[in-house]
Design a protein around this nucleic acid. Structure first.
Length: 584
DNA sequence: GCCGTTTTCGGCCCGACTGTTTTCAGTCG
């Protein structure tokens, strides 16, 4: 009665391989090995997490060592893992260093040295044991520890327990950052202020906010910052740097600096770390030392950069857009003069996926259309859910026809916007569609999505989506992975296969701009761009305010190196319709 | 452990803040 797939070896995803390498890095650090060995594991893990190709495939082709940061030793370990399902190096390592210490490392202010000390001196290997020891006042006796360190560790454990997740999506981080920047901009001493960090790069999730302020009065600005009503706790505060926890739990750093050094500072604090390290290495080769303060020549004299562009120019590079700064090859491309031209929000002419009160939207068709028109859109497709999705009051074919009458009425109230009718049709568990072909054939644009049975295994859910893509009526696949950032993992669907079939069938793939989705994700956008898949950016708006999310979708496209030519809704309506399957 | 416009060996980005220290180590970004 044993099924075939129960005997099969576990298949490792890129993320799982990366996570194992991160874990090895932590354990090797606690073991006390040279930091460069630790960094090597982390670098390899970063590369694999953002590979954009299935690691199993790369391994089968024998090309593991072509991955940046993967040399002979790490390639051998990955090979062993993928072929046998275990890694003897990891087994040996965890026999020496208890793997639960990785959790201890997550306590703020506990790094490898402190974790090792607590483990070696007091035998503490879990967060619970550390907590008990701290409460009993046993930590302060350790060399390098004191009462304050002990208290900090206790507070750190508390904050770990209180936080559900340590990252938030852009829909949370972006308004919070705008709010802080606005408050600081109102201070008379502040000359310039901006957010930097992962938010400026539009990473899908954000760990904390990085705010920069140019001022001649850092002490005054820091004092004012600590007093802001948004601030719950001041975590640390010096002359140039203050770190606080905001109400709601998000943490924010404020750095103050001279206006003349704005460019180097903004560049540095935008990151990411790997991009910065590579930039600093490039600077060293050219005889400079680059820091957030300046470019320093070997004789110690400084070149100040008031603008970011000057930093890149001084290193012989064109400006690199923040969304590209992930060390995914952008510095090499910049050196070669091969940076892509990125799509911008002004390029988007309309959307083909939004909802109304006809299903689970919160605004009428008219409100949605007028808002889209006010945004300068040329077209909008109303695409309410189909009948099978009961909780969204999905439409039956009959109601779909009634909706058509309303769309025609609304059309008369519009100046420029061209309003069309579509659907977000449910892809049922077996891959069939929730409307018959003759109904789909009448619609202007069909988005097909998966909302149910998201836990199907990889083969089943992939076959299901592929079957939908082979329908001549399906123009695009909506939010293909089904992830909900910080809440729900993506489904097991094989996105590489989805993209391959998309290219073959001419099915468009959506970049859903809702900040909790950003689905297709940046890494696969890059694969789509490389394989010639047509993408479409939609906010999936359920109310008028949701159209403002477009910038998150555009940023995700930019992070995947997409230009306007890769995004179908940068086209005028007729050209977009012509690009559909069987389009004129 | 990785890597090469100086290198196949000897490097590997740079700085702020805190706490425990008599001058610096650890952590963080």
């Amino acid at each position: 009665m044993k099924r075939e797939n129960m005997k099969r070896k576990t298949r490792y995803t890129n993320q799982q391989v990366a996570d194992l390498l991160y874990k090895i890095a932590d354990l090797v650090a606690i073991k006390g090995e040279v930091i460069y060995r630790v960094m090597a594991y982390r670098k390899a893990a970063d590369s694999i997490a953002h590979l954009g190709r299935d690691i199993n495939e790369v391994w089968r082709e024998g090309k593991l060592q072509e991955i940046p940061g993967v040399g002979q030793a790490i390639a051998d370990k990955i090979s062993e893992l993928l072929s046998t399902g275990h890694m003897s190096f990891y087994d040996k390592l965890t026999a020496e260093v208890p793997p639960s210490l990785v959790e201890v490392l997550r306590i703020p202010d506990v790094g490898p040295k402190k974790a090792r000390a607590m483990w070696q001196e007091l035998g503490l290997t879990t967060v619970a044991e550390v907590k008990a020891a701290a409460e009993a006042g046993k930590l302060r006796a350790l060399p390098g520890f004191g009462p304050k360190t002990e208290a900090k560790i206790l507070a750190g454990i508390e904050s770990l327990a209180r936080r559900i997740t340590d990252r938030v999506h852009l829909g949370v981080a972006f308004p919070a950052a705008r709010d802080l920047v606005g408050a600081l901009a109102r201070l008379p001493q502040v000359r310039r202020v901006a957010y930097a960090g992962s938010l400026r790069r539009f990473c899908p999730t954000i760990g904390d906010l990085d705010i920069l302020a140019a001022t001649d009065d850092p002490v005054g600005v820091m004092a004012a910052f600590r007093q802001l009503p948004q601030v719950e706790t001041v975590l640390l505060s010096g002359e140039t740097k203050t770190r606080v926890r905001l109400i709601g739990g998000l943490e924010a750093d404020l750095r103050c600096l001279d206006e003349a050094r704005w460019g180097t500072a903004l560049q540095y604090f935008t990151g990411n770390k790997a991009h910065n390290i590579k930039l600093r290495e490039l600077a060293l080769k050219q005889g400079f030392s680059l820091s957030e303060y300046s470019l320093k020549r070997e004789d110690g004299s400084e070149i100040l950069c008031a603008e970011e562009e000057e930093v890149y120019r001084a290193l012989g590079l064109p400006f690199i857009e923040p969304e590209l700064r992930e060390d995914w090859g952008e510095i090499e491309a910049a050196l070669a003069g091969e940076l892509p031209r990125l799509v911008s929000i002004q390029d988007i002419r309309g959307e083909v996926h939004c909802h109304s009160t006809w299903s689970d939207g919160r605004a009428s068709i008219e409100e949605m259309a007028l808002t889209a028109e006010a945004h300068g859109y040329e077209y909008l497709v109303i695409s309410d859910h189909s009948q099978g999705l009961g909780m969204t009051r999905g439409l039956t074919p009959e109601r779909l026809r009634q909706q058509w009458a309303e769309i025609q009425t609304v059309r008369r109230k519009l100046q420029r916007l061209r309003l069309l009718q579509g659907t977000e049709v449910e892809i049922k568990a077996d891959g069939s569609l929730d409307f018959p072909d003759e109904v789909l054939a009448e619609l202007d644009f069909v988005v097909a999505s998966v909302h149910s049975s998201l836990r199907q295994d990889r083969e089943t859910i992939t076959r299901r989506v592929v079957r939908a893509m082979r329908s001549p009526h399906v123009d695009a696949i909506g939010h293909p992975s089904g992830r909900l950032l910080t809440r729900r993992e993506e489904s097991a669907v094989d996105l590489d296969e989805v993209l391959r079939v998309a290219a073959e069938t001419g099915t468009m793939i959506e970049i859903n701009a809702a900040p909790e989705r950003l689905d297709l994700d940046d890494v696969h956008v890059r694969s789509a761009v490389e394989s010639g898949v047509s993408l479409v950016i939609n906010t999936d708006a359920h109310q008028p305010g949701d159209f403002d999310n477009l910038l998150f979708g555009v940023a995700t496209a930019r992070r995947g190196w997409a230009g306007p030519e890769h995004i179908a809704n940068t086209l005028p309506l007729e050209a977009l319709l012509a690009r559909k399957k069987g389009g004129a």
